[in-house]
Design a protein around this nucleic acid. Structure first.
Lengths: 221, 221
DNA sequence: GCAAACATACTACTCAGTATGTTGTCAACG
DNA sequence: CGTTGACAACATACTGAGTAGTATGTTTGC
């Protein structure tokens, strides 16, 4: 429960750490936090809990690590679009496409990420955990703020038609997050498949905020 | 785990049954299925597990009962619109508005409903449970089919612009379900507040499928 | 030979489900 | 009209199966 800063493991050690993260993401995604035991994660790797507790002091820390990684992946996915100097609508399209693709590429991580958000309901247990949750909510807010900013810019430029920003922003984001709920990874799904789905989803979301024509994307994510 | 048909309790008995359902919905919503113990639900009512097990043979049956009720509420919410003889776009608007309002009015039930859907990942445990899940997926498909049908009708009539139906349908539904994830019930929220939010959400979703102008609703839900 | 990277063994606790006890109500019977 | 007994509606007590976390081996690379 110490929730220490995410110490970066040494080069070789890093792989084992990464294996654990992936395994945990997979298990948490399949069964949820409570239903996943440390032994479940360990057995997933053909190991025992000794290995897990060697890298993470508690189940909650393991979960937090997965969630933080997921959040980082989400940021990485929208960064190219967000940091570009495209006009608002194109920028929004680029960010959205990156985000939707990431939802499918990192399906397990992203499902854990959304699960973790709902876990506010849990009511944080310890003081450390409360702090970790606080920090994470901050990151989540920063993430939403990126979209809010670009949406607002598009609105100010007269390119978007919005209702109350708060509700529209949430609706927009939940539409982008959609694939986490309804997309099931299939053998052989590649980037092309992701792009196809992402195009439809982003077209829907953009139309929702008043963009009739899907802009041509010059940014590839 | 017997998952008997939802026997309808006798008039007086019915209230206690209902109390249990509500309590269970509240607990499952707050903590999720696994993290909610039978004792949690009992204590929520100031009772003990004896009371719970008097009405439900197992935790899973309790959960299924809540989920079934939620599904019924969802159907009730879209029925007036669906069974009307409005043209497709107006029908869609009526169904959608009813659905979004229900998401907020029956927030706990609806959150459990969506949680339960994701619980496929659990991999059903017993034979009975597998059957219950099968039945529930059937209901869910029937629900989606209602929207799919009306969307298709609107598309055929040339009123909607859709991409691949499957992805658009899912995006549309997830946008409508959105409030379950981002709306937090507030003291003093009434039907008027719900209507305000629903209007924005439905406007977004309809715009997503190409309806530029929000149709006037003649059906009140 | 020593520490990292685990595995094994153990403890305290929770929780689903069951078995059994208790209380109030209502009906039939004397 | 009072007594009894049967049943519904719970509460209490208990069991067995996990499970988080810890304490303590054991191996392997350097």
């Amino acid at each position: 429960m110490t929730s220490a800063l995410p110490r970066v493991p040494k080069p070789e050690k890093r792989d084992r750490y990464e294996e654990l993260l992936v395994a945990a993401a997979e298990c948490f995604q399949k069964q949820g936090f409570s239903a996943t035991s440390i032994d479940t994660v360990a057995r997933y790797l053909g190991a025992t809990k000794g290995r897990v507790y060697h890298y993470f002091p508690s189940k909650m820390d393991l979960f937090n690590a997965v969630r933080d990684r997921a959040m980082a992946l989400a940021f990485d996915a929208i960064r190219p679009g967000y940091e570009s100097d495209l006009p608002p609508v194109e920028k929004l399209a680029a960010m959205s496409t990156g985000h939707v693709k990431a939802m499918m590429q990192h399906h397990s991580y992203m499902q854990v990420l959304l699960d973790g958000l709902q876990m506010q309901r849990f009511g944080a247990t310890t003081e450390f955990q409360r702090a970790a949750m606080e920090r994470h909510l901050g990151e989540r807010n920063a993430f939403e703020a990126c979209f809010r900013e670009v949406l607002q810019a598009g609105c100010d430029a007269g390119d978007l038609k919005l209702g109350r920003m708060s509700y529209i922003l949430q609706s927009y984001l939940v539409a982008l997050n959609g694939p986490v709920f309804w997309y099931r990874p299939r053998e052989g799904d590649d980037d092309e498949k992701y792009a196809t789905i992402a195009e439809d989803v982003v077209r829907f979301a953009l139309a929702g905020v008043g963009v009739a024509e899907f802009p041509i994307l010059s940014i590839r994510s």
